[in-house]
Amino acid sequence: MKFLLVFLSAAIVNNFVLTYFLGICPFLGVSKKTEAAFSMGLATTFVMTLAAMISWLINNFILIKYNLPFLQYVTFILAIASVVQFVEMYVKKASPALYHSLGIYLPLITTNCAVLGLALFAALRNYNFIETLFFGMGAGVGFTLALIIMAGIREELELSNTPKALEGVAITLIVAGLLALAFMGFSGMISV
C-alpha cells in the first residue's frame, strides 16, 4: 500500500509547488485563466508520469548497474527533453484538436523544474518502479491542483481593487504564500 501513500504525499501533503517550490515559473506564468491552467496541468501530469518511469529505468538499469551516478543530471535532463519532444510529435499526429489546446505548453515543460525535481527525488528516495509511477502521477496532480486553485483566485483578483505596485506577480506571490500556509495544515500527516 505504500504506493498510495506516496501518491497522496506528493499530491497534497508535500505539494511540489507550495512546499518544494518546484514549477514556480508556470505557476506564475500560466495561472491567469482556469482553462489554460487545466490544460497546462494535464500536459505536465502526463509528461511527469512518463518522465518518472523513463528516468527510473535509466537510473536502475544503466547508471546504477554500470556505476555511473555522476551522469545522472545529464541523462535525466536529456531523457526529459526527448520525452517532451516525442509527446509533442505524437499528439500532433494522433489528435490535432488536443495538440491545438496543449501544443503551446508542451515545449515549456522541458525547463519546468518540477519534472527534473521529480526524477531526482525518486532516485534519492530509492522508490521502486510502482512507487515511482505513482509518485510521478501524484506530483502531477498536485501541480495541477495548485495551478487551478491559483487560476481561480487570480480570476477573482482581476476584478478586485489591488494596489498598483502589487498588481501581477507580486500579489500572486503573496496569495501563493497564503495558500502555502493553508497547505501547511496537511504537514506531518504522511511521511514518506
Binding site: F21, I171, L178
Partner: peptide, 15 residues
Amino acid sequence: LPAGAFITLGIVLGL
C-alpha cells in the same frame, strides 16, 4: 517556512 518565502518575495517586488 515556505509560506514566508512567497510572502517576502511578493512584498519586496511590490516595494
